[in-house]
Amino acid sequence: MKIEALLLSVRLALCVSAILIAIGVPLAYGLAYSRWRGKFLLEAIVALPLVLPPTVLGFYMLLAMGPRGALGKLWYAAFGHGLAFTFAGLVIASVLYSLPFAVQPLVASFETVDSKLLDASAVLGAGSLRTFRRIILPLSVPGIITALVLSFAHTLGEFGVVLMVGGNLSGVTRTVSIDIYDRAQSLDYAGANRTALLLLVISFLVLSAVYGANRRAGRRAWAPWPLR
């Protein structure tokens, strides 16, 4: 078993979950509380990766990251090299791919905060930022943990997008799922089996932690299945 690939996957999953929380929290706030009429369009866009095959996303990412794509041009201008086949490229693609796994539990948990508490906060003189920081966030901790764990687990197990834009570079883009695939392809079934089993166990532990925590919290914050 290649520990390098596993470590890379963990590093990728950590980066992606951190970024997803950073951009997912404001996005989820907007989705939960905005009264904008076109909100449903944004909801649909966020949920797209749930239904799109990773090949579609990977394909567009590959084009976008190339020298003719907007993202690629920007990256060339800033760093002098392409975005495909880099760790950063993998992070960007994975953030997009795991977006609903972070945003949906956050939206669900923001929405379950009693609106009267928000009203109470407002009449006590708090602006929306203070209300968010002092009331919504602390009451959404289970949802935030769910979002973190699911983003982490989903990125850890991601394959299609990484395959499409990664280029299979050892230590840079060869994640554990790619490693498993390579082993199966080169008929090293025993090696594939060991790594796959490890990934299976990790994923199972992560998911049972989420479901267990939800159960203890006495309500279902959000779980990927059934979908909301």
Binding site: D114, K116, L117, D119, A120, S121, A122, V123, L124, G125, A126, G127, R134, I135
Partner: peptide, 15 residues
Amino acid sequence: QSRQIAYVFQSLALF
């Protein structure tokens, strides 16, 4: 938040 009006709801809405 700027009206300086206190409001106690039926549900009280204690944090």
